[in-house]
Computed example of a mutant assay.
Amino acid sequence: MWGCDYIPYASGWGGWIPMVFWLLILGGIALLAFKTLCGKSRNGNQDADRNDSLAILKTRLARGDINMDDYNTLKSVL
């Protein structure tokens, strides 16, 4: 009939430009959500974890929970 087959953005340049735009926007949002939910990698926190463990070990030695031999053994494991 009179223009009933006209669908905006369905042909020519107008068909794929908005689709690519929205795919990039949604892909960026998905990447941001993934990075936020996963947090830092394990390698990024490894030094901080070792320092925390060493501080706990020193505290246990100072309290007398472990002796110097145990301290050295556990420190070598870290």
Score class of each variant (00 low, 15 high):
M1P: 11
M1D: 14
M1A: 15
W2P: 07
W2Y: 06
W2N: 07
C4P: 03
C4V: 02
D5C: 04
D5V: 01
Y6G: 06
I7N: 06
I7V: 11
I7Q: 06
P8C: 01
Y9I: 01
Y9T: 09
Y9R: 07
A10D: 12
A10G: 06
A10Q: 10
G12D: 08
G12S: 10
W16H: 10
W16E: 11
I17C: 13
P18G: 02
V20S: 04
V20I: 15
F21I: 12
L23V: 12
L23F: 14
L23G: 07
L24F: 06
I25R: 03
L26Y: 01
L26N: 05
L26I: 15
G27A: 13
G27M: 06
G28H: 07
I29R: 00
I29Y: 01
L31H: 03
L31Q: 08
L32P: 00
A33Q: 05
F34M: 02
K35M: 11
K35V: 12
K35I: 11
T36Q: 15
T36G: 03
C38T: 02
C38Y: 01
C38R: 00
G39C: 05
G39M: 00
K40C: 02
K40D: 04
S41P: 07
R42H: 06
R42S: 15
N43P: 00
N43T: 10
G44C: 04
N45D: 14
Q46M: 05
Q46W: 07
D47T: 11
A48T: 11
D49A: 07
D49N: 09
S53V: 00
L54I: 15
L54R: 12
L54E: 09
L54M: 11
L54S: 08
L54D: 03
I56R: 09
I56A: 15
K58N: 13
K58A: 05
T59R: 03
R60D: 12
L61T: 03
L61A: 03
A62I: 12
R63S: 13
R63A: 07
R63M: 05
G64A: 13
G64W: 06
D65P: 07
D65Q: 14
D65G: 06
I66H: 06
N67A: 02
N67R: 09
M68H: 12
D69I: 02
D70H: 10
N72K: 12
L74V: 10
L74H: 02
K75T: 04
K75M: 05
K75C: 01
V77F: 04
V77P: 00
V77G: 07
L78T: 10
